[in-house]
């Protein structure tokens, strides 16, 4: 494990720089742009697709404690959450509770 204060400091500065560089570049590049223009619509679609891909990655190759849970549990719970979300007329709380309930149920049934 890393020990010296300097190493932690460099990881801290790097973490902020590696995130904010994209945000600041975004502010610079968006100068004088009309939010309803075709370019921005395209950028919006790219952002949306990127976030959707991030979701897929979180589900397919999870990190931390979630990595210890089987694929089937994650997929079943994700699907159950979405179905509940749509059936309830896009109510977040309903979808999230259903996903969590399905997560524990699937874990108990599939991975006893």
């Amino acid at each position: 494990m890393h020990d010296s204060v300097w190493i932690w400091l460099s990881f801290a500065i790097m973490g902020t720089a590696a995130s904010d560089i994209w945000r600041f570049a975004g502010v610079l590049l968006s100068r004088g742009v009309d939010p309803e223009s075709a370019v921005i619509l395209w950028v919006k679609d790219v952002s949306t697709a990127l976030v959707a891909a991030l979701i897929a990655r979180m589900l397919l190759s999870p990190t931390g404690a979630l990595a210890g849970v089987g694929d089937a549990v994650r997929f079943v719970a994700f699907g159950a959450g979405l179905v509940a979300f749509w059936l309830s007329g896009s109510r977040l709380a309903v979808g999230l509770l259903a996903a969590e309930a399905a997560f524990f149920a699937a874990h108990a049934l599939i991975e006893p």
Partner: peptide, 22 residues
């Protein structure tokens, strides 16, 4: 318990997907 920690991490992709499609 690890399964509870896992269920918390699992909430993020579920919410992201619902938030986008809402």
């Amino acid at each position: 318990p690890p399964i509870v920690a896992a269920s918390l991490i699992f909430l993020t992709p579920v919410y992201f997907f619902m938030g986008l499609s809402a």
